[in-house]
Nucleic acid binder design. Sequence first.
DNA 1: ACTTACGGTAAGTAAATACTTACAGAGAGT
DNA 2: ACTCTCTGTAAGTATTTACTTACCGTAAGT
Lengths: 101, 101
Amino acid sequence: MEQQAWDALADPTRRQIFELVAKHPSHVQPLADQLPVSRPAVSQHLKVLLQAGLVGAKREGTRQIYFADQRGLAGLRRWMNEFWDEALANYQQEFREDEND
Amino acid sequence: MEQQAWDALADPTRRQIFELVAKHPSHVQPLADQLPVSRPAVSQHLKVLLQAGLVGAKREGTRQIYFADQRGLAGLRRWMNEFWDEALANYQQEFREDEND
DNA sequence: ACTTACGGTAAGTAAATACTTACAGAGAGT
DNA sequence: ACTCTCTGTAAGTATTTACTTACCGTAAGT
């Protein structure tokens, strides 16, 4: 479920698209203009981001406006925060004592 | 830089290893016993996690104890929090108004 | 109606990668 | 010294995937 979000954001190009869209909702073509890849590549990336729930789309005639959606990130955020609090805080000190690197 | 952390955590097996190690520092063999993959696979995953700064290692004779390291996660956490505050909060409402899905 | 712009999908390809088995090294116990 | 256990790496393979070009459908302007 949230595996899709991980896969989606692991790719640098896709993450860049996600950042662009989050800063400013946009169509496909303008996004492709700002990126070193072709327009179909952007479309494919947006499809992945859509299925991961990271972006949403809204039709405007033949175009489509893509925008960021919080819901997709929520899972990762939760995972990360639980992690941060739960496990790391405990076990780290006891090994930091005699680790010198 | 933090691309390594994304790649490392995007893989489900590797993420599982990371979670196991965070909950309880461990050697390689015990980790492999809890996972559906071979021991060398675990070693390779740990190498990736090491290079991403997500785990640390400490020699104990011929064995090696692996433990989670906060530093690797810090980058992702920062990215995600900046994101959450900066962009999403703004642009979402204006599109949520007439989006019905 | 015809053209033009925009965008999604199909087909194909090159590269990345997660896994396996086989091999080699290094420390602990007898 | 010899063996046994634990581990990292090499070599090879099958799958995934990010990208390209080509094609097709759809809405807007004249």
